[in-house]
Simulated scan of single mutants.
Amino acid sequence: MKGGTQVIVAAVPIALNAGEPYVRVTEEGELPHVCPKETETNVREVLESLLVRSRRLPDACAEPLPVCLHCDEAGTRIVELPYLVSTRMTTDEPGWVPCYDLLPWEDHRREEGMGQASALGKLLIAQNEGMPPSERLLEKRRLDALFAMGNCNWKPPLAKERWAAIRNGAQQKEAVGMASCRFPHETNYRWLCAALGHLRLSIIAQAMPVNLMPERFTIPQLHAAVEGILGEAVDRPTFRRGLTNGRSVEDTGACSDEVFGRPARLMRFRTDVVVANQTQGIPLALSLADTVKQAETIDRLFPDGTPRPGDRN
């Protein structure tokens, strides 16, 4: 790392809970990130050090997001290296926050999300009244497409572009304040929106969320996950036909006992789909927190010298 340049490696850990996308934040309410030292050149090791887990869970997979270059007020060149980390979570693990609590305008399955997206779009259009007519018309068309106004349909993958429009509005503070105030620093929104847009584009390109789903799942569970990631409703018959034509899942021969009424067949991703997915990212082995490591030792179970089962007298 040369003088005058600062490198930031950021992780955007995303998991699913009942089909809803969650992002993991630090105790300070930020996405995990660090400015690595000159000797810390292995991105994989840096990411693994950022994502210590408190529970034993399957390994994660990291995918690079677009690099961001800019300069701060002091003239220091900032190089941001964000990574989407697809993983799984448990409901009692701390630090996970629903993505749509942070980005409510990105959830178009609900009236509240659609209403906020429309309100943000109208606010940004109103801020452009001072532009020349031709430029104002072009900007209005762009904002209509981003925020699904007029006759434009919702475009899920444009999450990063929507945040850029909010952040770069003529009256930035009003737009950003209306959008959300959960993250301490606005940079976190850019990273999260880039990760969400990348996930959504993958889904639209028929790439299944292999690292986000359990090893076995039902078709309704996968359907709910795809709707949750996209933030919009997906026609069920069309979704099932897409799975059949794509041949990305296969029947395990078992049924789920968690569904009331008619048992649902348990599916899994085909081996070739899993292998193809693994080759596109960086496999991460997330270490356990020290407190959990200690709690799982036999000495921690008998701290006062209480005889252990099998001890000789």
Rank of each mutant, 00 (worst) to 15 (best):
4 G>E: 00
8 I>R: 06
10 A>S: 15
10 A>K: 13
16 L>P: 05
21 P>C: 08
23 V>S: 09
36 P>K: 01
38 E>A: 14
40 E>F: 01
42 N>H: 08
42 N>Q: 08
50 L>M: 10
55 R>P: 00
61 C>W: 10
63 E>D: 03
63 E>T: 11
65 L>Y: 02
67 V>A: 11
79 V>I: 12
89 M>H: 05
90 T>I: 08
91 T>E: 13
97 V>T: 13
99 C>T: 15
103 L>P: 02
105 W>F: 06
106 E>C: 12
111 E>W: 12
111 E>L: 14
116 Q>E: 11
119 A>R: 14
122 K>H: 15
124 L>M: 15
126 A>E: 15
134 S>M: 10
138 L>V: 09
139 E>S: 14
140 K>G: 10
143 L>M: 08
145 A>L: 08
154 W>N: 07
155 K>T: 10
161 E>W: 03
164 A>V: 06
164 A>G: 02
166 I>P: 00
171 Q>C: 08
176 V>N: 07
178 M>A: 15
179 A>R: 00
180 S>F: 06
209 P>R: 05
211 N>L: 11
214 P>W: 00
215 E>M: 06
216 R>K: 14
225 A>K: 04
226 V>H: 04
226 V>N: 02
226 V>Y: 01
235 D>E: 14
237 P>K: 07
239 F>P: 11
239 F>M: 13
246 G>I: 06
249 V>L: 03
250 E>L: 12
251 D>G: 02
259 V>M: 09
262 R>K: 14
262 R>P: 05
269 F>A: 05
269 F>W: 12
270 R>H: 11
270 R>G: 10
273 V>I: 15
273 V>K: 05
274 V>K: 15
274 V>D: 01
278 Q>L: 13
289 A>M: 05
294 Q>E: 10
296 E>T: 12
301 L>P: 00
302 F>C: 12
305 G>S: 10
307 P>C: 03
308 R>H: 13
313 N>T: 12
